[in-house]
Design a protein around this nucleic acid. Structure first.
Lengths: 145, 145
DNA sequence: CTCAGTGCAAAGGATTTGCATGCCG
DNA sequence: CGGCATGCAAATCCTTTGCACTGAG
């Protein structure tokens, strides 16, 4: 997706939930687009020049409600944010237990099909209503190894 | 695994890392065994009669280092602990976005094989050294639905 | 003018740590 | 005896919230 198009989509989604696409929110989205992996608050504050911490937290909250960003928790317990899959594509994570970094890895079709089957099975057996799934590969990244 | 046997194994693992199997640690393990799903700190403190919060945190830390318990973070950002898979068996999680509860679901052989393939692929492509993986099905549990 | 967005500072909440005590080895 | 485990309380750290200011509509 082109950046221009993406920003337009983000704007639409925000308006859809009665929110505006403000400078801070745009700055946050820009960082997320540029990084293309779940980023921590520290990274966001470093990258987005001069943003107030609370504003970033609030922007992320709004963007999350709008379905634009997705929040996850890294192995260190710190929150990480990335663009929602609706704006990127379904992927999984390589979680480094050494440095805490989380990288994206594209999902394979075959794997997804199998997961879908497992999901359906679990749902049928337990009454659980699945919404999405997460597959994280936990280990040590090339840089720490 | 029998409880007796399990406690013996836990004791061994602790000694292997130069730690003792103390009353508090045993109490914590007892709760984890009885619950058979990731439990929050609150649940641990409620279940384990009269344990000091800090002691439980410290015990969990030691047990984690010994490879006896596994720590994860629920959708609410609160830590949850369960027995490590070496002491139970490989399984996945049903994560309820409504109440934050995490339930276990056994892993299917077929799924595991596919995942293993995906893991190997990712490792080869990125230099990532995988140690384990997590598959969480996120949705709403039967009780909240 | 009105109201949402922003920044700063203070509050909140889970987790960690310092320190004194008690127990096991 | 010596050292680790424990409990209590204080300290940390990430995150959230209160409040006043600013800018867009």
């Amino acid at each position: 997706m082109q950046d221009t198009e993406l920003h337009a989509t983000v704007g639409e989604r925000l308006r859809a939930v009665g929110q505006r696409y403000t400078p801070v929110r745009r700055a946050v989205v820009d960082v997320l687009v540029a990084t293309a992996r779940p980023v921590s608050m520290v990274e966001l504050l470093d990258a987005g020049s001069g943003l107030a911490q609370s504003s970033v937290y609030r922007s992320l909250g709004v963007l999350e409600e709008a379905g634009v960003v997705h929040r996850m928790l890294g192995p260190d317990g710190l929150a990480r944010h990335e663009l929602a899959e609706a704006l990127t594509e379904h992927h999984h994570h390589l979680v480094c237990t050494s440095c805490g970094t989380v990288e994206d890895v594209p999902a394979s079709l075959r794997l997804e099909q199998t997961v879908a089957r497992a999901v359906a099975q679990a749902a049928a057996a337990t009454g659980f209503r699945p919404q999405t799934h997460r597959l994280d590969l936990v280990g040590v990244c090339a840089r720490c190894d």
